[in-house]
């Protein structure tokens, strides 16, 4: 499906989305409260069928977080970037989607580990790369480690 049709379809499903034409993909920014419902629609609706999540990550924008999901449909050959905007920077929370795209289970654990974003209903939310005793979340912009980080 072309980006223009995708835009119309998604804004008819969820009026609160913000649609941006990125240099490569259509970017869909949705508030974290409405995120889970939209993700389910995108995955299971016949017109979209985004079955392949090829990347998942998070960005710290200092006052809010964005979890970012790169989605593609192997059947219909279209792609977009779905972003959940998490307004609360102190206690970031968003619903898990690891039952929709199974690859997200480890990816969400990584984001939890490095950003401290909590994924509601995640079956096994623990630190992944760092040790359990680690203090803080290193990929946050306000993370300070005076020993191991060289600031330029």
């Amino acid at each position: 499906m072309e980006n223009e049709k995708l835009r119309q379809l998604i804004s008819s499903w969820e009026p609160s989305v913000e649609l941006i034409d990125g240099p490569q993909y259509l970017e869909v920014v949705v508030p974290s409260a409405q995120f889970r419902a939209l993700a389910e629609k995108l995955r299971f609706d016949n017109q979209t069928q985004f079955d392949y999540m090829f990347n998942m990550t998070c960005v710290d924008w200092n006052d809010h977080f964005q979890t970012i999901y790169h989605l593609e449909s192997t059947k219909l050959n279209h792609a977009l970037v779905l972003k959940a905007k998490i307004a609360d920077h102190n206690q970031p929370e968003v619903d898990t989607i690891c039952d929709i795209w199974r690859t997200a289970e480890l990816h969400e654990r990584e984001v939890f580990d490095l950003f401290g974003v909590k994924f509601n209903q995640h079956p096994d939310l623990r630190r992944l790369l760092l040790t359990d005793e680690w203090v803080g979340h290193p990929l946050r912009k306000d993370y300070v480690d005076e020993v191991n980080m060289v600031l330029r």
Binding site: D51, Y52, M53, F54, W101, R102, T103
Partner: peptide
């Protein structure tokens, strides 16, 4: 289906 869902490439 699992290969796609798990992102096995």
């Amino acid at each position: 289906a699992d290969a796609i869902s798990y992102g096995v490439t």
